[in-house]
Simulated scan of single mutants.
Amino acid sequence: MNKKLNIDTVVILAGGLGTRLSEETQKKPKPMVKVGSKPILWHILKHYQFYGFKNFIICTGYKGYVIKNFFLKEKSFSAENIVIVNTGLKSLTGTRLKKIEKILPNEFCLTYGDAVSDLKINKLINFHFKKKSIFTITGVVPVSKYGAIKFNNQNKILNFMEKKDLKLNYVSGGYFVLNKSILKFINKNNDEMLENAPMKKIVKTNKMYVFKHKGFWQCMDTLRDKMYLDKLWKNKPKWKIWKK
C-alpha cells in the first residue's frame, strides 16, 4: 500500500516469557512462535509494512537473541530500519517503553508481539489525530469459539447464546497510537505495567480514545490459539492483507 502516513514508526513489545505457551517458548520467545512457516512477529511486521511503516523498534527481553538472529537473515525487511533493544529480562511493559524514550519520535504506534488482525492502521492513525488524542487504544471483539451461558446467582442457566447472538464487548486489542508525552505518566523509578497505573492516570487527561475495530483479531496466548491460527493460515487468513 505504502500510503503516506503521519507516523512511520512502530514499537513492538516482544520481551515477555510467554508462560501460557510453554510448550513452544522453552527455546524461543513468544513472538518467535510460528504461524505457518513464519514467526507471529513476522506477520505483525508485514501488516504494518503494508501500511507504509518502515521503522521498527523491537523491545526484547527473554531470549531476545533469537529475534535478533532471525532479522539478520530475514530478507523481507530492511535490517537498517529495524532497531532491536534489550529492555530487560523481566521488565514490565511500561518500563520497556520508558527505556527507549530517547529514540522515540513524537508520535508512534505500539503493539504486542502476539496478536494478528486485519485492522486498517491508516484509519486508526487518522482517528488518533482527528481526536487530538495522546493515547488511542484499538478496541476489538475477541473471537468466541463457543456460545455464552447466562446464569443467575444460584447458577441456574437462564439463557444460552450462540456465537452469532453475542453482543459486542470490546477489549484492548494491543494496537495503540501514542504521543510521546504519555511517557511522563510512567514512573522511571519503579517497574510498571503500562496497562495499570500509567493508563489510569492518562484517562484523567480526557485525551484517551478508543478506536472500534469490528473486524478480525486474534491473540496467541495458548497452544490452542496457535493451532487455531495455523488452521486459519492454511485457508485464506483474514490478517494476510499483503500480497507476498
Rank of each mutant, 00 (worst) to 15 (best):
K3S: 12
S172Q: 12
K238Q: 15
W233H: 14
I182L: 06
N152D: 15
K98M: 05
I121L: 07
F216Q: 00
W42Q: 12
Y48P: 05
K131N: 10
L166V: 00
L92I: 01
K123M: 04
S37T: 14
L104G: 02
I40G: 09
L97S: 10
N155M: 15
I137A: 03
I67C: 09
I67N: 08
S181Y: 07
Y112W: 07
L158F: 01
F129V: 06
L17I: 11
N235C: 04
G113P: 01
S78H: 09
K132E: 14
D8H: 12
N106G: 05
L110K: 06
V33H: 07
T222R: 06
L21Q: 11
F135Q: 05
Q218V: 00
K90T: 14
T25P: 04
P31V: 10
I202P: 01
K30I: 08
I100E: 10
D230M: 08
G61D: 08
V141I: 15
K4R: 13
L110W: 06
Y209V: 08
K231M: 06
L232D: 00
D225H: 08
T9H: 03
P31A: 08
V11H: 10
I12Y: 05
K54T: 15
T95S: 13
H213Q: 02
L97D: 05
P105W: 03
G139K: 03
I57E: 05
S133G: 04
K180F: 03
K163D: 01
A115C: 11
V33S: 12
N159V: 02
L124G: 01
N179D: 15
G36I: 06
H43P: 09
A14P: 04
L158N: 10
G94F: 06
K214G: 01
K243M: 09
V177K: 05
N196Y: 12
K145H: 02
S22H: 11
N122F: 05
E80K: 15
S117G: 07
Y146F: 07
A79E: 14
Q154R: 12
E24D: 15
L223Y: 04
K75Q: 14
K150D: 07
R224L: 08
V210K: 12
E101N: 13
F71D: 07
G147C: 08
L92Q: 15
E195F: 12
G15E: 07
K236Y: 05
K240N: 11
Y170L: 13
L166M: 11
K38L: 14
L229F: 00
G36C: 13
L104F: 09
G94Y: 05
K164V: 00
L178Q: 10
M227Q: 14
T93V: 09
E192N: 13
V33N: 08
T136F: 02
N106C: 05
W217L: 00
N69I: 14
G139A: 09
G61I: 05
K226E: 06
T60P: 03
T25R: 13
K236P: 00
P142C: 02
Q154V: 01
V210S: 14
N187Q: 07
P105N: 08
I82L: 06
G64C: 08
M208H: 03
Y51E: 11
Y170S: 04
Y146C: 04
K231G: 00
D114A: 06
G18V: 11
F70I: 09
I125S: 09
D230I: 01
F70P: 06
E80S: 14
W239P: 01
T138A: 12
